[in-house]
Nucleic acid binder design. Structure first.
Length: 476
DNA sequence: ATGTCC
């Protein structure tokens, strides 16, 4: 649908000299509400309000905007919270494979007045604020962009009492169920009659405030869906070279289901809302803008923590539904389940100190803690057990990490080359674009070699039947 | 990452 040309948009406001911030949003809403005044008139008046907000402070139409502008001007005069001149040092794993941009972002994070300790995982790359693969321990505060946009993004693994031979013989049936029991695509959810029920829908945090309450219906529709990007659900063969007693798995090969997804629209909306709020409440110098933090003893900080926790429970519930549905459809016995968040913040003790540990694309690897580190659709993933290494703040990588950007991958990898790689590895793929091609990722073995001090490998998972979101670029 | 707000 085309946008009517008489509507004032962000570009119009920018042209008038409005800059991003709270007043910007007020200006957009004011213009939207008073469209009947006509675009020309609105533009002229908006320019006038910007030039002299004091004159409009009590105006019926522009009063709210004028006051927002006055407030913004007053806020701009407040000096930003200074960063420390020298940041605390931090451990870097697999340094030679980490892009300089990720290092630079981590350097800035370590200069935050609340920073206690940090570490960069061997799959690290640049993100918003904290790099992906960045681990940051801070004192009594939480950084929304230190958790990431996809709050609670996680891995979940079900190990079935099904031998490899059965999977090979009934490949078509597994493919059919993988399509039937999963749902992919940005914005996609289930129709009312398809929706799954889950305990998480009764979580009291959905009633914590009107903002979160408004997200519940879409969250319900998207519960049990996987979304897009690098998210997947796949069957593969997991091999235990030796029996694992804590898990109760004898040595051998088993069919397993591995899923990677997060909190969908719910978490993304929460992340966006509280990042914006944090930036309004926590003024940092421009290079640290996206690291705005909320004190845990403030109302806003507690609200974010509660909303983040909800998004985490919701992401877990989505995996639970996927795994439950699949086990039921297959009539499979589940021998073991393993799962772990890799975009989240935790209250932990580090070197005897109470800290808030942000892992943004990093696997928790406390002593004895199980985690899953995927490779790519044709490279193995690993079931690992953490070693509790203090220097890594008990963390490890959350995957292989990209070696090519999405655009670079689409430009340089051919569909034939991707097909050949899949065939060579005996992998059947449903969906996915060239930006998710195995060649776009780093070599997982190199990444694992850089973190032998952080985790030990318990079992190796080899993908065989993979589903990802359809390639958007082919639908155009 | 998300049905894309600035």
């Amino acid at each position: 649908m085309n946008t009517p040309t008489n509507v004032i948009n962000s570009e119009d406001l920018m042209a008038l000299g409005y800059t991003p911030g709270r007043a910007f949003g007020v200006a957009l809403r004011t213009a939207g509400k008073h469209q009947r005044l006509g675009k020309e008139t609105l533009l002229a008046q908006l320019a006038d309000v910007l030039a002299a907000p004091e004159a409009y402070a009590a105006h019926a139409v522009y009063g709210k905007l004028a006051n927002a502008l006055i407030e913004a001007a007053a806020m701009a005069d407040i000096a930003p919270i200074p960063l420390r001149e020298a940041g605390t040092g931090y451990a870097v794993y697999g340094e030679s494979h980490i892009e300089p941009g990720a290092r630079a972002q981590m350097d800035v994070a370590m200069q935050l007045p609340v920073a206690v300790a940090g570490a960069l995982m061997p799959d690290a790359h640049q993100g918003y604020g904290l790099p992906i693969g960045g681990v940051l321990a801070v004192d009594n505060a939480v950084i929304p962009y230190g958790v990431g946009v996809d709050i609670g993004c996680r891995m979940a693994l079900s190990i079935y009492d099904i031998p490899e031979t059965f999977f090979v013989e009934h490949h078509a049936r597994f493919k059919r169920e993988l399509i039937a029991q999963t749902r992919f695509g940005a914005g996609h959810g289930f129709k009312p009659h398809e929706r799954a029920d889950h305990q998480v829908l009764t979580d009291e945090a959905f009633g914590m405030n009107p903002f979160v309450a408004n997200l519940k219906d879409k969250a319900w529709a998207q519960l049990g869906t996987s979304g897009g990007g690098n998210h997947f659900v796949e069957f593969g063969i997991i091999e235990f070279p030796a029996a694992d007693e804590p898990l109760g798995i004898p040595a051998g090969k088993y069919l397993a289901l591995l899923s990677h997804s997060g909190s969908r629209g719910l978490g993304a909306t929460i992340a966006g809302h509280y990042t914006k709020l944090a930036k309004e409440l926590c003024h940092l110098p421009s290079e640290a803008r996206n690291l705005a933090y909320l004190g845990l003893d403030t109302h806003a900080g507690q609200e974010y923590w509660q909303a983040m926790t909800l998004a985490g429970s919701y992401a877990s519930a989505s995996h639970d539904i996927i795994h439950r549905k699949m086990a039921a459809a297959l009539g499979a016995e589940v021998l073991a389940r393993v799962e772990n968040h890799h975009n989240f913040a935790w209250k932990e003790t580090w070197n005897g100190q109470e800290v808030v540990v942000h892992r943004k694309g990093a696997t928790p690897a406390g002593k004895g803690v199980l985690g899953i580190i995927p490779g790519s659709m044709t490279a193995p993933g690993f079931l690992v057990r953490g070693k509790g290494e203090a220097a890594s703040i008990s963390s490890a990588s959350h995957g292989a990490g990209r070696q090519m950007s999405r655009t670079q991958a689409i430009k340089t990898i051919s569909r034939d080359a991707m097909k050949a790689t899949l065939k060579q590895h005996g992998v059947t793929l449903i969906g996915a674009g060239l930006d998710e091609a195995p060649m776009a990722y780093k070599d997982i073995h190199t990444v694992m070699a850089a973190q032998t001090a952080l985790v030990e490998v318990v079992a190796t998972f080899t993908p065989r039947l993979v589903r990802m979101a359809d390639d958007g670029s082919r639908e155009d």
